[in-house]
């Protein structure tokens, strides 16, 4: 009895945290999204979102950019994660750390360096805004793709692959029929860690002197123009997209224990 009480009290700080920093802001967000500047209920912001060609254009551009970044990250990260997880190196952990280490160096510093390199190559950054964004974001988000993939693949039961080859599968078939499907949880986690930030992280674009707009820049511009209502609506729509995405991928995954996690 006493023990149960003690446990309940332990939860109180977290409950307060959740109320103050998750639920309350969410309610405020919803409030602003569905009111106008005089505080009256309105769906104008919602309608505005889907009718403003500027917003829709930015949404599509953001989706395209995020998709490109995610695919590039996945293509780079999977072979790295796979070969590291499957290798017999004693220093595996150190090599993984090397790939993750950029995360520990200041973000603005890294992007400034990248900007200088890209400028040296391209001359003027304004000529290739999309490619520059992809490069910048890939550089920034790659560790978030490698880690969940590495975690998932390194936990795969090697006897499953042996069983497949025992049953007649060659190495390509083993990969396509066993390794790849079983590393899906890591792929999904990696996508979630990369795709969503790629839609909104406009700081990368700003730092690369990029004039293109993504969803994050749009929200930022609305808020700096004191239109909290339209800004909130965009944030809310993005939130719903995220929820839908999570439900579609991770939510249907039965065996949650196989989900890759950060470190």
């Amino acid at each position: 009895m006493k023990k149960a009480f003690a446990r309940k009290y332990l939860g109180i700080p977290y409950a307060i945290f959740l109320i103050l920093f998750v639920i309350a802001p969410l309610l405020v967000l919803i409030y602003y999204a569905f009111t106008n500047s005089t505080g009256q209920f309105t769906v104008k912001n919602l309608v505005g979102f889907f009718t403003d060609p500027n917003t829709i254009g930015t949404l599509l551009y953001s989706l395209g950019l995020a998709l490109a970044v995610t695919i590039v990250c996945l293509i780079i990260a999977y072979p790295i994660a796979y070969s590291l997880a499957m290798s017999n190196f004693n220093s595996k952990a150190i090599i993984v750390m090397l790939f993750v280490m950029p995360m520990w160096i200041n973000f603005t510093l890294r992007l400034t360096a990248l900007k200088e390199i890209l400028t040296a190559i391209e001359g003027n950054l304004a000529f290739h805004p999309f490619i520059n964004s992809v490069i910048g974001m890939t550089y920034d988000f790659l560790p978030f793709m490698i880690l969940p993939l590495y975690n998932t693949i390194s936990k795969l039961d090697l006897s499953l692959m042996e069983a497949a080859s025992d049953l007649g599968a060659d190495s390509k078939q083993v990969f396509l029929k066993i390794t790849l499907p079983l590393s899906m949880p890591g792929i999904v986690s990696g996508i979630a860690m990369v795709f969503l930030p790629a839609m909104t992280n406009y700081v990368v674009l700003d730092m690369l002197y990029n004039s293109t707009y993504i969803m994050g820049s749009l929200i930022g511009s609305y808020f700096s123009a004191y239109d909290w209502h339209s800004g909130s609506m965009i944030a809310l729509v993005l939130l719903l997209i995220i929820v839908a995405f999570t439900l579609l991928t991770g939510g249907t995954e039965e065996e949650d224990k196989n989900r890759g996690a950060l470190l």
């Binding site: 042996e162 025992d166 599968a169 079983l182």
Partner: peptide
């Protein structure tokens, strides 16, 4: 020879059934 080229099949210690 690699395993897939041998007319031999194995029952594994922990079954190794494909979970997916």
């Amino acid at each position: 020879f690699p395993p897939n080229k041998r007319p031999i099949n194995t029952v594994f210690q922990r079954y190794a059934l494909f979970p997916h």
